[in-house]
């Protein structure tokens, strides 16, 4: 293997792990509080779509990212309010948001660009370019931000009152309530945070990674993020690491398809990340313990 290949593999790993890691970190906070949002896949695709639309209109990808985050906040809030105040069956709500996301973005794409499948190209967030021996290593600023966020969350969860209260709401909401913590508000806020990062992750796909909207472009990454949180044992650093491991296999798949694409059908490579995720998930599943009250709505009296 030559150095160019290694650099390109590493660069792609960071590129493809970032959307998973971002969504996973958000979901981690949501789940810590006791709410599960399996609809982050849907929020990602919606975030991707609206970020591209915003960039298409303003020609400014930063505005695109902000719009992606705002849309994520709205859907996170929706999921949070339904789960917390109306005791929604969170799994069903999540499936609903996923389907809704696919539908909404496909309809919108057809309306705005008049073609099914994908949008026109829009400008993207400029990458940081590092040259090593004539090989180009490009790094997205959002990747750097993601890594920083992981470390920040690590400290917040471990050493601050916010972390303590989140944990208490997810472990035993009644005890937290008795301790004077507004469990309902806290869980809603945690869902909003999770939604924001899922929207951010979608925006990354739209206006950083690809520079256009493509139907179903989230491609199950929201669910891979869910797997990362579980395998990462609800800790930010491990979750981020495992997200990039999944990113690595996605990158590997692309590079293998480039090299061997003529001899072997592309589908054989495309299934690699999904199979690897499943295998890792099965092997590490038993070792991690979820927050005790996860996905259980809390009711008073």
């Amino acid at each position: 293997m030559n150095i160019g290949l290694i650099i390109s593999l590493l660069s792609s790993t960071l590129r493809l792990g970032t959307p998973i890691a971002l969504a996973a970190l958000g979901e981690l906070v949501t789940e810590k509080s006791g709410v599960v949002n399996i609809g982050i896949e849907g929020i990602m695709i919606i975030g991707a779509f609206f970020s591209v639309v915003a960039t298409y209109i303003t020609n400014n990808p930063v505005v695109g990212v902000l719009v992606g985050i705002i849309v994520g906040i709205l859907f996170g809030a929706l999921h949070g309010l339904l789960s917390v105040y109306l005791y929604a069956g969170q799994i069903i709500t999540g499936i609903g948001v996923t389907i809704l996301g696919y539908g909404l973005t496909n309809v919108g794409n057809a309306i705005i660009w008049g073609q099914p499948g994908f949008s026109v190209g829009v400008s993207t967030i400029p990458s940081i370019i590092i040259r090593v021996d004539g090989n180009v290593f490009s790094l997205s600023p959002i990747t750097t931000l993601t890594l920083f966020l992981a470390i920040l969350l690590h400290f917040i969860l471990k050493y601050t009152w916010i972390g303590l209260r989140l944990k208490s709401a997810g472990e035993d909401p009644e005890a937290a309530d008795v301790a004077g913590i507004n469990v309902f508000r806290l869980r809603t806020l945690a869902s909003i945070f999770g939604g924001a990062l899922a929207g951010f992750s979608g925006a990354y796909l739209g206006v950083d990674w690809s520079g256009r909207f493509i139907s179903y472009m989230s491609a199950g990454r929201g669910y891979i993020a869910l797997a990362s949180v579980i395998i990462g044992g609800w800790t930010p650093l491990a979750t981020t690491l495992i997200s990039y491991v999944f990113g690595f296999f996605d990158a590997l798949q692309l590079i293998l398809a480039q090299i061997y694409g003529r001899q072997i059908a592309p589908q054989m490579f495309q299934i690699i990340p999904y199979i690897v995720t499943s295998i890792i998930f099965v092997f590490f599943f038993r070792k991690s313990k979820p927050p005790a009250s996860i996905a259980k709505p809390y009711k008073r009296e």
Binding site: L82, Y87, I92, T93, G96, V97, L100, G101, G103
Partner: peptide, 10 residues
């Protein structure tokens, strides 16, 4: 469908 599911979950 998505909206129906979300609404039916509550």
């Amino acid at each position: 469908q998505g909206v129906v599911l979300v609404a039916a979950s509550t």
